[in-house]
Deep mutational scan, measured.
Amino acid sequence: SFQYVPVQLQGGAPWGFTLKGGLEHCEPLTVSKIEDGGKAALSQKMRTGDELVNINGTPLYGSRQEALILIKGSFRILKLIVRRRN
């Protein structure tokens, strides 16, 4: 089963996490790295392996390109929903 975790990061880029996968690579869009001391790490809500399913209220369909555009369009606040295996 899965758990959906809301994450809100503040203060602008860099957000402190790296993505891998996506439709382009025929795999889920997941968090591959969280930078020590970065905003994602400080939130204590994101983990490597989390799947990104929503950015700023926009549902994602797995495209890494789409996710990067939405993330780049976030100035002060980035709201994410990640899906994690229980």
Rank of each mutant, 00 (worst) to 15 (best):
I34R: 02
P6H: 15
G49W: 04
L23T: 14
E51P: 05
V7G: 00
K79F: 07
I77M: 13
S74D: 12
P59W: 09
E51I: 04
D36G: 10
L68T: 11
I71N: 05
S1G: 12
E51D: 00
N86R: 15
G73W: 04
E66D: 09
K39W: 06
K45V: 12
P14S: 03
Q10Y: 12
A41W: 11
G38K: 03
A13L: 06
G57F: 02
R76F: 08
L80Y: 09
V5F: 13
K79G: 05
E35V: 12
G57R: 05
P14W: 04
N56W: 04
L78H: 04
A41Q: 13
V31I: 14
I77N: 13
P59N: 15
K39D: 00
L23M: 14
L29F: 09
K20P: 04
F75T: 15
A41T: 05
Y61L: 15
T18L: 09
M46R: 05
C26S: 14
E27I: 05
A41D: 11
S32A: 14
G16N: 05
S1W: 04
G73Q: 13
C26G: 15
L52R: 03
S74V: 05
T30G: 03
V82Y: 00
L42F: 09
L52E: 04
G16A: 01
G57D: 12
K72Y: 08
I55H: 00
G22Y: 04
R85I: 08
V82G: 02
I77V: 14
A13Y: 11
L29H: 04
F17A: 04
G37F: 06
Q44Y: 09
L70H: 12
R64S: 08
C26N: 15
S43H: 06
P14L: 03
N56P: 00
L23C: 14
Q44E: 11
K39N: 06
L78T: 04
T58W: 07
I55V: 14
V31W: 01
D50H: 05
I55C: 06
S1C: 13
G37R: 10
G62L: 02
Q10R: 12
K72E: 13
G11F: 02
G62H: 07
H25T: 13
V31C: 05
V5W: 05
Y61F: 11
G16R: 00
R64T: 08
R85M: 11
K72N: 13
T18N: 08
P59E: 13
L29R: 02
V5R: 02
K45F: 07
W15E: 00
V53A: 11
E51R: 03
I34D: 02
T30R: 09
Q8K: 13
S32L: 09
R76T: 13
I55G: 02
R47K: 12
I77Q: 14
L52T: 02
N54I: 15
K79I: 03
P28L: 06
G22M: 05
K33N: 14
Y4I: 08
Q65P: 06
K33F: 14
Y4C: 04
G11T: 04
D36L: 10
I69M: 15
G22A: 01
R85Q: 11
L23D: 15
L80C: 07
D50F: 05
K33Q: 14
G12C: 04
G57Q: 01
T18A: 12
R47V: 09
S1Q: 09
G73M: 10
F2L: 05
L23W: 11
E35F: 14
C26R: 13
L42E: 12
I81K: 07
I71L: 13
A67V: 01
F17V: 00
T58L: 09
V5P: 02
H25P: 07
G21I: 00
P6D: 15
E27D: 08
R84E: 04
M46E: 05
E35N: 09
K33S: 14
I34Y: 03
A41K: 08
L42P: 05
S32F: 10
P28T: 07
L60T: 12
H25Y: 13
G21A: 03
S1N: 15
D36S: 12
